[in-house]
Design a protein around this nucleic acid. Structure first.
Lengths: 220, 220
DNA sequence: GGGGCAAATTAAGGCAAACTTAAGAGTCCG
DNA sequence: CGGACTCTTAAGTTTGCCTTAATTTGCCCC
């Protein structure tokens, strides 16, 4: 799950980004509207968090511009308290949710999970695949009812695969889901995490399609 | 994935149909309940989107009628906001999901993806040739319901042939499909893969046109 | 019926993809 | 500040696929 954060207040952006990364999201950041639009096209995020009070462009225009460029991912708007008109405009322009400043980061995270669920990126809070239950909210994974302890990256990887059971994801696609810009990896990291996941769950749970990628499940 | 849209509001139906087609669904349309029931029988859709406010019949009755006629595909209901009673009736009558108007098209698409996943019908159209099913998303191939394990090249070859059943593809054309520029082969590789495919499926599945190439036929 | 060419068959070597392991750097937390 | 844990690298190993090429079979036309 890859998130683009468009926010000019640097300390706030720092805080949000840290919290998000902690929740195993990959985060890209933009400080201006133009930068945001550019990054949205380049990085193909699953979700955009958009502050309406940007220095260069009006937030609503940014949103419209995104939609116009064919970027239809979920968008959450951040706005100052009582800027009701802006909210309404935002929703009309195709935003999916809004949050008024100031807000608690936990609130943001909760909303994100709700959006995630609603947008069908991962529908039910618990994804069920074979004898494995994945709870995206708590980051808990159960194998036959027994908790499996996964690290952050392992969980991200598993979630990425679990969003579309049976579908094959290439290493490249998986890396895109796990890493933000500027922290690309240049090794077989994905392989290693896959290996560790298999050890913690069971080997056949993740299938290798040689020369193509990995997929989850008995496949269909 | 084939969708039947039963909706009398023409402009709304236009919008939905366009969005769906854009997502590579095949869409049939009906403006009335009767038309809808007729089309559902004729077109055999995988999913029905049913507006409850139709001019001729009550939406719930349409749904019941469909079920009665043995059409058990997934059904998503569209209903005006707050028509709670209708929703409940709808779910009782065997609908799988509902959406209240007005709604964002993205929301509809997200719900569809969720339903798709739940029902196991895949949008990436499974190619069906004779008794062989080819799923391009998962690289799975089923022969009479039994999985056939294919290697990457074998799968590519099969897919190339299956994209246009009955059409003859020359060795050269097939090589072009399998290899990127600069990695041309200089031997009978294609022949060998064809042979292995025949062994894994059954010989007559792939037909040889002497001096020309290969094609996929309904075979038996 | 026979020559010649196209396609089928088979087996083996080479090679790249994927797996495995371990170690060092980095991070978090008490 | 120290210890635990996680992540990334990289090197070594294994596995399985692909290609090659030699041989056999089958077809068509002379």
């Amino acid at each position: 799950m890859r998130i683009l954060l468009i926010e000019d207040d640097e300390s706030l952006a720092d805080g949000i980004a840290t919290a998000l990364r902690h929740e195993a999201y990959a985060v890209d950041r933009a400080g201006t509207g133009r930068e945001g639009i550019a990054l949205a096209q380049a990085a193909q995020p699953d979700l955009v968090i958009l502050d309406l009070g940007l220095p260069d462009l009006d937030g609503i225009d940014v949103l419209k511009s995104l939609r116009q460029k064919g970027i239809h991912c979920t968008v959450m708007i951040l706005t100052a308290r009582d800027a009701l008109r802006a909210k309404i405009q935002g929703l009309d322009a195709g935003a999916d949710d809004y949050l008024t400043k100031p807000f608690a980061v936990d609130e943001l995270l909760a909303r994100l999970r709700a959006l995630e669920r609603r947008s069908g990126v991962s529908r039910s809070p618990d994804i069920l695949i074979g004898d494995v239950v994945i709870n995206t909210a708590s980051h808990e994974v159960l194998l036959n009812g027994e908790a499996v302890k996964l690290s952050r990256r392992e969980f991200s990887l598993l979630r990425a695969l679990a969003e579309r059971p049976g579908h094959i994801l290439s290493r490249e696609q998986l890396e895109d889901k796990l890493y933000s810009w500027g922290e690309e990896v240049a090794s077989n990291t994905v392989d290693v995490h896959i290996h560790n996941l298999r050890k913690k769950i069971y080997p056949e749970f993740i299938q290798t399609i040689r020369g193509v990628g990995y997929k989850l499940g008995p496949g269909r």
